[in-house]
Design a protein around this nucleic acid. Structure first.
Lengths: 337, 337
DNA sequence: TTGAAAGCGCTAACAA
DNA sequence: TTGTTAGCGCTTTCAA
């Protein structure tokens, strides 16, 4: 059985089934015009020889490979690695094959996309917000269907699936006000995209409409040590309610508040994060966080990708997924849930 | 420039360069027998037309695709996602294209490998220890080069790159004894592989040779909540030095010790983890941990893969990477570093 | 309902 | 040094 090395080809299946390669191809593709008897014979032969079609050869003939390029960045960020996991799972289920490349510098975006297109990928999914502009430019030139996940660079001419950051920020504002916050702060991320800014915008707008304002703000790159330093600066201003643009920033801020400023959470300080990463649920942090509903986003991303592959002339769509706030102890105030 | 849709072929480059497809192919491949003048002309033409070779077509002709299959599992585990990141980076640098599939159930290993081999991948890297036996079986049957990362299932007939878990356990024992531990415990992971067991083995052996023993043990799957429950049981026995088979278990145990048992770390309890994940360095945990040197492991994995691709008849190798202990505050005792 | 033959884009053996 | 030709394994006209 262990056909070591050499793979079986249609030809050999045909020989065993007393038939021809074309018939084998048709039978396996479920072509209607093949008699039941021949189909049976072919399938039996294929099974017996453990035939696996050569998808590379098929791709050369057809115009489609079944391969979808995925461009990622910063996989050490829990949010990204979890998103990638969801994409990989979903794509596997859908019969797409993910060819994954990392893009960590803007000048490499071109090389990455070129390699993907050289492999004739059917589409590209980009999960690398900082490099979107470049990716959009290059994919546009090559005419490959492109779907951006969680990024806002383009107007409506590019397929985009993104969380509704503004709505998320608004939810946080409402929640913090309801929890009794008085002195608000925003702790943003420097990610060169609009995501952090939109979260801030929604937050500030809604605070305003509720008769409050956001007096303090700072920002940091998404790395613990930097965040910790920035947090210290922010806490000097003595806010009592802080919205952090992601969970990592929130963890750093909480550590800083407790260990460096001796403040208790939620007693002295209410904290909300974003992304609802696994660690947010750990008792040491027990952090209220905004869940982007990544499963839904991933599913929509794949659905959009599939649609673009099936009809490349399709109008690009921009989809938005409403997040939901997961309240935990970092904002729990006596008398409220 | 935006050659929208249709790709340029060798033929068109040849036409522009007043030459033939084979010459183009050779010039681009750097064949020595092409005159400097023609090479220049061809390269110029290729550049002008923005020619990108069709790697699918090339793969059909050559026996090699440049694609390497990667089988992963449990990407929500920080250790796995970080390893995948390193592999993807390294493979990108080396000109390999990673086709990534997740395997989450044993009965799907076959389907995953079949899809990879259908795409004619040059080799398979498996980072999915629980399913190694099945993966080895199927890859063996298809004759694809296979490299297992951090897993021990097979004898020396399978390429394996793994951390030296036993040595890691031994390091921890020495460290905990040096830090004054008296009452030792092991907190293992249930991962159906020998990894956790080997860490325990090295730990206990060395404790023994230093005149101590490991009195307590428990285990848990690698999930925070379960770990937390198991940790509570373990702490009932009042150990003063615990070696946890990975960082996640250690975090759960630390939280449990502090929040539920009111014990201070390292005052009442020394804790060591494994994997040296990013969180171990956060001040709230500041966890002494064993670093597997994943960069080195990833590099060796890729090097082995490359070697197998270059010479498929090559003898399989089993490589072991020595980990190193990163001391932090969870085991810092006054008077010692 | 089936088979023969052409061709996807590339590379390599063979000629020139 | 270069061009012509065949063929990788598959699918799909076209013909039977």
């Amino acid at each position: 059985m262990a056909d070591d090395g050499k793979r079986v080809r249609t030809f050999e299946v045909a020989a065993l089934a007393n038939s021809s390669p074309s018939t084998v191809s048709r039978a396996l593709a479920g072509d209607k015009r093949i008699s039941e008897a021949t189909r049976e014979r072919v399938l039996a032969a294929a099974r017996e020889l453990n035939y696996q079609p050569n998808l590379i050869a098929r791709s050369l003939k057809n115009a489609s490979t079944g391969i979808v390029g995925v461009v990622v960045t910063d996989l050490d960020n829990l949010y990204h690695s979890h998103t990638l996991k969801l994409l990989i799972d979903e794509m596997g289920d859908q019969g797409m094959a993910p060819l994954v490349f990392a893009c960590n510098r803007n000048d490499r975006a071109g090389a990455v996309i070129d390699r993907l297109t050289s492999y004739q990928v059917d589409a590209v999914i980009a999960l690398a917000a900082p490099f979107d502009a470049e990716i959009v430019r290059i994919c546009g030139a090559s005419g490959k269907p492109l779907v951006l996940m969680n990024s806002y660079e383009g107007p409506t001419t590019i397929n985009t699936v993104a969380g509704d950051s503004r709505a998320g920020g608004a939810m946080v504002a409402e929640h913090l006000v309801a929890c009794g916050g008085q002195h608000f702060a925003f702790f943003g991320g420097e990610d060169s995209t609009r995501i952090s800014r939109d979260r801030e915008l929604g937050f500030c707008e809604t605070l305003g409409s509720l008769g409050h304002r956001c007096d303090l703000r700072t920002s940091s790159i998404y790395a613990y040590d930097d965040a910790r330093r920035a947090a210290a600066g922010l806490l000097e201003g003595r806010p009592d309610a802080v919205f952090c643009a992601n969970d990592l920033l929130a963890f750093a801020l909480m550590d800083c508040a407790r260990l460096q400023f001796g403040r208790s959470i939620p007693g002295d300080l209410l904290v909300v994060g974003y992304d609802n990463t696994a660690i947010a649920a750990w008792p040491s942090y027990d952090l209220t966080s905004v869940d982007q509903c990544l499963e839904i986003m991933a599913a929509k991303t794949i659905a959009t990708t599939r649609a673009m592959i099936d009809d490349p002339k399709r109008e690009p769509t921009v989809m938005t997924v409403l997040p939901r706030l997961i309240p935990r102890n970092s904002t729990t105030v006596p008398g409220r849930l």
